[in-house]
Design a protein around this nucleic acid. Structure first.
Lengths: 195, 195, 195, 195
DNA sequence: GTGTAATCGAGACGGTACGTCCAGTCTTACA
DNA sequence: TGTAAGACTGGACGTACCGTCTCGATTACAC
């Protein structure tokens, strides 16, 4: 297992500089204003170095997000014992976070990456959703233990529906929709069908 | 009421040619491959004519969608009397439509346009969702008359949650997620909470 | 001889406005910055009116020059009895006039128009030189009467050589050349060959 | 003395291709038909490469002329011992050369460049005149040794007057003026004033 | 008065070229 | 071999004008 390759090793400093530059520029002008040229210039790095290690803009953004270099909005899903209250708070925090310019840029990056269809876009998409998904599943499992969730409910599906609602609110970018967040949550909790 | 402006009037032929060119190119290469230059060339129109009437690519796409020039996938929401069956079929049709290359391109266009252009995004977003939203609300109201919907449910909210699920499936672009469509639908119908 | 045509007659006001606009814009930015669009806008005239009456920019400039609308530098060739002194003064005035920004722009316009437009160039060129040529010939004839010009000299040719020198100084746009104006004049008066 | 700059060095091949393309296009359509876009296309070069190294069309033309890439009309000033005969022949050759389309294009380029671009114009102007000026001065000095030039004549001034006459004939672009070339020459040789 | 006809302003039309920006590749010298 | 630097081809961007066209409105003369 010889992972020592000949030649000069990859510069960790360059890697960090690139990710930080990407995060910085993203905060300023959003995903569209992000250019490989711009990242290279701000990071003090040759363009070749970018293309050597990352196949696309989305890949850089994804790594920056994974790496924690990029300031993702931190949203906590608490466990107070009251599922509805916790989910309401979780949605509220999301909506609040989406007011910040930086977060909007990140969401746009997500949308752009999804539409760009390269390999990195799924990575990016998963990165943006998997954390929340895990937290939701854990919270729902805990609620199931408490008897707050009906026994035959598909918890993974419920988590995805909650994510859907979240995504919907974010993409709509519409204050009116945000204001109705608790109504949407009520549907997910109680369903629409007669019992 | 003087709506007669001086000068040569706008050419309806040029307008149509632009929208059709945009639709055609979109079907082929998606939103990213869509360039103002390309639209102008294919429509046989000067670039200035584009910029005179539309502020951005997204605006052209939005108008093409509104205008019906662009071949949006037609999905029908039937009323067989069985709400669950109808919604299941509705989702199935959507997932099937999303297999077609053209539709995928259009949906990517939606995502990209929404993420790229603040002004046009709402117009575009509403256009893509309002038709479905109306159909959903009507179907749910009909189901409420039949007693299939619990009386205190917020029908508009339910429609939005269904749209969310739809959007989620489309954006995830993941066969695994599509396969679980009925599970997601079950959550929306019956909720996740214990009764 | 029926020069009364049916229809609305040509607007003299529009004609003047065009020529004045052309002159004004020329003084500001020179021939290159002169655009049909700009002239039309400044004159408050439709573009069609321009193209109806003038085939080219150069034609407008030529007419403006002929018409006296354009502020050509006025240089007088006096007759004090001393040919050399009068010609020296004539050159001096020209060089002085060329210091003014407006005049420089106009002369550049002449050069550009001559080089750009075959048809109008002769008209324009003649207009710019014929006045001086006439004055020179008259002055030389007067000098011939006084015996200051050798009897077998071709006076028209001499006038053209003086114009040449003038043109040379203007085109060179070189202070050094201007300073040597009297040396050039001496050659024209006394020749370079041994007697 | 470190003239080694970092980065990829300038491509001599691209430089040559640009100058040749400029020369070719000039021969075909003249200076007006010369576009940066056209040069780039014909040279197989990106537009950025043009703008990286040359500030304007005139600068490219000037370098092409300086470089010898562009086929300047070759006019020889012989020394047969007879100054008048040699100058007559020199003028004749010039007039003949000006019949060729290519030469006309070059002269227009000169005029246009002089009028359009302050910085490059002097370079271009000098390039077009300095060769002739040197030849004239040498020839006149030789004639002075033979006693064909009056001892107190300013030879540099005489060369400039001859250049003036040349320029005048070229700019007038008038067969009539060309036919009178020997008359103009006679004035320069013998002067117009009485001895 | 009422055509008829050419003008006027305004401004949209298909195009060409501009000068800038960025993508992704290549070619140096240095580490 | 990796790296910073930077030149390379290519192509889209949004703007400025070109010369042509199509409107409604105006203004003359001829009937």
């Amino acid at each position: 297992m010889t992972n020592v390759r000949p030649g000069r090793p990859r510069s960790e400093q360059a890697r960090r500089a690139v990710l930080e530059a990407a995060g910085d520029l993203m905060s300023v002008g959003g995903y569209e204003a992000l250019s490989m040229e711009g990242i290279a210039a701000r990071a003090g790095v040759g363009k070749q170095t970018l293309y050597r290690w990352w196949p696309s803009k989305a890949a850089i953004v994804a790594e920056a997000a994974l790496d924690g270099t990029m300031p993702l909005p931190q949203v906590l899903l608490l466990n107070s014992g009251d599922l509805r209250a916790d989910l309401t708070e979780w949605l509220r925090q999301f909506i609040e976070a989406m007011q910040a310019t930086e977060s909007v840029a990140l969401v746009r990056a997500l949308a752009a990456a999804v539409s760009a269809d390269d390999e990195a876009s799924h990575l990016l998409y998963d990165q943006f959703t998997s954390i929340s998904r895990h937290a939701l599943i854990e919270r729902l499992l805990s609620a199931a233990d408490d008897g707050q969730v009906r026994p035959d409910a598909d918890i993974a599906a419920a988590a995805d529906v909650l994510l859907s609602v979240n995504l919907f609110i974010v993409l709509a970018r519409d204050p009116h929709t945000a204001a109705r967040a608790t109504d949407l949550l009520d549907i997910v909790l109680n369903g629409v069908a007669s019992p």
